[in-house]
């Protein structure tokens, strides 16, 4: 299974807003499949880290209550044009994802 990770930044007045979208199922492990009547196993992102020039800026721990296809926004300060903003996540099955972009 491939899970797409996308990221966008927008800088205004010295503040960089970072938008992250991951196409992740975020299954809670509490829901039964309407077809098989079996519990759908939990599959969710545990930790998502947003870094600037490889230094972590925001480390988010998530539970099963975060919606499917998480859309996260954070704000960074002091980012300069050309700085590398990256996002990395890991889920409860050990799958990981990565995306990066440069501050415009």
């Amino acid at each position: 299974m491939h899970i797409a990770t996308r990221m966008k930044t927008r800088t205004q007045g010295g503040i960089t807003e970072v938008l992250v979208l991951v196409n992740h199922p975020m299954d809670t492990g509490l829901v039964k499949s309407p077809i098989t009547h079996k519990i759908i196993p939990a599959h969710f992102i545990k930790t998502l880290t947003i870094a600037i020039n490889h230094k972590p800026a925001v480390i988010t721990d998530m539970g099963i209550a975060v919606s499917k296809d998480p859309l996260i926004a954070v704000k960074l300060k002091g980012a300069k044009s050309g700085d590398l903003v990256s996002v990395d996540w890991i889920d409860n099955e050990g799958m990981t994802g990565h995306a990066e972009t440069h501050v415009s």
Binding site: I15, I52, K55, P56, A57, V58, I59, T60, D61, M62, G63, A65, V66, S67, P70, L71, I72, A73, V74, K75, L76, K77, G78, A79
Partner: peptide, 16 residues
């Protein structure tokens, strides 16, 4: 639901 650790690079803002 979520726990966010911030460093001095980040502002006190989180959207989810």
């Amino acid at each position: 639901a979520t726990l966010v650790n911030l460093t001095p690079h980040a502002l006190g803002f989180f959207n989810v």
